[in-house]
């Protein structure tokens, strides 16, 4: 019985570690594509561009605020969002820009595809150099 218990613990620990690795890789991808200075004058990333929503998603995940406008530091929110992004779920979210003027409705699936394309572009850029 003790052996089974130990094995279970070991497995759950392992699962946890696997999860960490997955989340770190996901965060690395997001970190790599967001706010690169070379994108500053790129049309795709501007307010009228095809990639604008990736900026807004970063704000949605990491810059969440409560009803009084205070920042919400909630690892739960971040991980929930990242997990949904990772799996590319069909759930729709509402992204709003900082000036609250732009408001889009987008699914995690579309976000995932967008990030993948942006990341692949970066990888190709790195290979060329």
């Amino acid at each position: 019985d003790n052996t089974f218990h130990a094995e279970d613990t070991l497995y759950s620990m392992l699962m946890g570690e696997l999860e960490n690795g997955r989340l770190v890789r996901l965060m690395a991808k997001l970190g790599l594509i967001n706010e690169r200075p070379e994108y500053e004058h790129n049309e795709q990333w501007s307010e009228t561009g095809e990639r604008y929503y990736l900026k807004l998603f970063r704000d949605y995940v990491f810059h969440a605020v409560d009803e009084n406008g205070r920042p919400v530091v909630d690892l739960g929110h971040i991980i929930t969002c990242l997990n949904k992004l990772d799996a590319g779920s069909a759930e729709l979210i509402n992204l709003v820009s900082r000036d609250e003027q732009t408001s889009l409705i987008i699914s995690y699936k579309e976000l995932k595809k967008g990030i993948e394309t942006a990341f692949n572009e970066l990888v190709r850029g790195a290979a060329r150099r």
């Binding site: 699962m15 999860e19 991980i79 799996a87």
Partner: peptide, 11 residues
């Protein structure tokens, strides 16, 4: 606290 306490949706 293991980070996998928050589940990932089916994929």
């Amino acid at each position: 606290t293991a980070l996998n306490t928050i589940g990932i949706p089916y994929y």
